[in-house]
Design a protein around this nucleic acid. Structure first.
Lengths: 146, 146
DNA sequence: CTATCTGCAAATATTTTGCAGGTCC
DNA sequence: GGACCTGCAAAATATTTGCAGATAG
């Protein structure tokens, strides 16, 4: 799931947006830090290492755009920051987040079982589910075994 | 599910906290606005109507405390504000949120089906789930029929 | 009495915006 | 060439904190 496998150029063109160096660099950074749930500031820190004159505002604007065109997902991990993760292409590769309330680890698990719930919501409420976010809070295996 | 059915005094004493007029007033307001997912500022606005000299900072501090002792749940409804809802006592009365991406309505649905997923997470990851948050995004019935 | 709480104002923290200059196509 | 984009700084927003006085128990 290399970030380069995403056709950034085409997606941007569709939106009337331009392919800029900054956008490519930011996408590469996010692609190389998967499973990391970076905040805008963290992305900016990483980007600055190779390209010191990319501004934080550009990172924010880029993440807004990437979220819109579906390249990333914005997450809320309850620490007061917006966090982002690459949107894995295949719908079969969605996942939930397990948040350990003891050590604050965030663990990803393959998605499962939501289809029947979504069907039920459609039947009972006429609500057509397009997407979802699921967070589980609890104690991770590291914290229970020590 | 009256807010007065919550034994605020006892819960506070347990934590070494005092039962103040402000805390009672704020709890009453939240109790009378269930299903509303109020933000701190909205709570403050309502509280001010009857008690103009309660400060916003007190509302923030109170919500932090109420969240800690389990009287409320903090929610993230993707509008950049912290929002709060009364924590219904019975675990059988938990619910998920349906967020309509067309009209921004937030609909509550009775909880269902998560137990087997949580059991599976325990089996496969050794992660003991204590709580969860589930949001579904989609189109509500009002928006599909018009 | 005294630890806790409150209101106010100031401080922080995060994200957004205006603008002048630069870049993509 | 012109629309779009960027960096910077300033603004806007949301939340937290310090402190002096007030209050619950």
């Amino acid at each position: 799931m290399d970030s380069r496998s995403i056709n950034l150029s085409a997606l941007l063109k569709e939106k009337g947006c331009k392919l800029t160096l900054q956008r490519q660099i930011i996408l590469d950074i996010i692609g190389s830090c998967q499973e990391k749930h970076l905040s805008a500031e963290e992305i900016h820190d990483m980007v600055k290492k190779s390209n010191p004159d990319i501004g934080l505002a550009t990172v924010y604007r880029t993440m807004l755009l990437f979220n819109e065109i579906g390249i990333v997902h914005k997450l809320d991990l309850d620490d007061g920051l917006g966090r982002y993760e690459l949107n894995r292409q295949k719908s079969s590769h969605r996942h939930h987040h397990l948040i350990c309330t003891s050590c604050n680890a965030v663990i990803e698990v393959e998605e499962d079982l939501l289809e029947s719930l979504e069907q039920q919501i459609l039947n009972e409420h006429g609500f057509i589910v397009k997407d979802h976010r699921v967070k589980f809070y609890g104690i991770c295996s590291m914290c229970t075994t020590t």
